Simulated scan of single mutants.
Amino acid sequence: MGEGSLRVAMRDHPQGQVTEGDFLIEETARPVPGPGQALVRVRYLSLDPYMRPMMNPVRSYVEPLKPGQTMPGATVGEVVESNEDALPVGTHVACMLGWQEYGLVTKETARIVDADAADISLALHVLGMTGATAHYGLLRLGDPEPGETVVVTAASGAVGGIVGQLAKIRGCRVIGIAGGPEKCRYVKEELGFDECLDHRADDFEQRLSELTPDWVDILFENVGGPILDAILPRMNDHGRIVLCGNISDYDRDEPYGLKGLSHLLLHRVNVYSFVIADHREYWPQAIAELAGWVKDGRIRFREDIAQGGLEGAPAAFINMLTGRNFGKQLLEVAPASVDHPAGN
């Protein structure tokens, strides 16, 4: 095993849509674990929309990336060298190592993953941050009641797909919005939504109106922009909007600017915006409940795993941002088998 570790950094702040030229791929020295640390070889990297606004030099809930910094991201991998008894060699862990092949963790920064209970990749979506996001956003903030109408944008995506299924478990009528007939078929036939609308279709707004005769009680919003504007007039009195993402704006030089904000006041709609990283204490209960539903077959999901190692991360990231992926976007950074460093 060599002594290097490949990483992907942001070369410079993107101007508009992200391109592969906005990234720098380089080999660095593999880190050496100190006391209480373990060296992890990354197996899978999660590629998520939140990474895009972090590339902009603007005030946000986290410090924006600076040119030359390693791209952030959730990872799952295997401990290959350890100075921490709680993280022996061979342990699988979920951690935030970003776009790199190797990284250091402690028992406080790594969550042990049971590789025998489920595929370790699930720790990056339905049994990880993605699942906790859907669970907290819908069940805690949206607080759905049986019989209510729930609309989910980006319904075929990692978060949206789980949200809709949680709403069905709660006894709601669920309408998904996705891009293209294939994704809409998946949302309705495999995930079990009651309906799914193609936002690219010419009759999208007409169909939305027809399918919400009693209005929309909860909107779980991942997209923003014109799609959100189309839904706002359909909101019920005292409805709830859970604002999870705004992916339509991430590549814009100027924000879209909603035209239908008056509907929030007219219908006394409550808007809840959140970032799941603010609610770490909620994750264990959410993941435990989701694990039971996955085991029972009540929660289904799809993974889109890009191949080719870390060099393929920029292209896979761009595919996800432009909606060319299908399901949770992951990157396989390294194969399952690893040779542990000598003496460990």
Rank of each mutant, 00 (worst) to 15 (best):
E210V: 07
L211D: 02
L211M: 13
T212R: 05
T212G: 04
T212P: 00
P213E: 06
P213G: 09
D214T: 11
D214V: 08
W215H: 15
W215D: 15
V216S: 01
D217P: 06
D217R: 10
I218K: 04
I218E: 05
I218G: 00
L219I: 04
L219D: 06
L219W: 05
L219K: 07
F220K: 06
E221P: 02
N222P: 01
N222M: 10
V223P: 10
V223Q: 09
V223D: 10
G224F: 05
G224Y: 06
G225L: 03
G225H: 10
G225F: 07
P226H: 09
P226M: 05
P226E: 14
I227C: 06
I227N: 03
L228M: 14
L228R: 09
L228N: 01
D229P: 05
D229W: 07
A230Q: 09
A230Y: 12
A230H: 11
I231S: 03
L232I: 08
L232Q: 07
L232H: 09
P233G: 07
P233F: 11
P233T: 08
P233R: 11
R234H: 09
R234V: 02
M235F: 04
N236S: 14
D237Q: 14
D237L: 15
H238L: 13
G239L: 07
R240K: 14
R240E: 05
I241T: 02
I241G: 02
I241E: 00
V242A: 00
L243F: 11
L243N: 09
L243A: 11
L243E: 10
C244W: 05
G245F: 03
G245C: 08
N246K: 02
N246V: 03
N246I: 05
I247Y: 03
I247S: 12
I247A: 11
S248R: 00
S248W: 04
D249Y: 01
D249C: 10
D249K: 06
Y250Q: 00
D251K: 00
D251F: 02
D251H: 12
R252L: 15
R252P: 10
D253T: 14
D253Q: 15
D253F: 01
D253M: 12
D253K: 13
E254Q: 15
E254Y: 08
E254F: 11
P255T: 02
P255C: 07
P255Y: 08
P255M: 11
Y256M: 07
G257V: 04
G257P: 04
G257N: 07
L258N: 13
L258E: 01
K259Y: 10
K259Q: 15
G260Y: 05
L261Y: 08
L261M: 13
S262R: 15
S262I: 13
H263R: 13
H263K: 13
H263L: 03
H263V: 07
H263C: 12
L264M: 06
L264T: 02
L264G: 01
L264I: 11
L265A: 13
L265V: 15
L266I: 13
L266S: 13
H267E: 12
H267P: 02
H267S: 11
R268W: 02
V269S: 00
V269K: 05
V269Y: 01
N270R: 14
N270H: 12
N270Y: 10
N270C: 07
V271I: 11
V271N: 00
V271L: 03
V271M: 03
V271C: 03
Y272Q: 11
F274N: 04
F274A: 02
V275I: 13
V275R: 08
V275P: 00
V275M: 12
V275L: 13
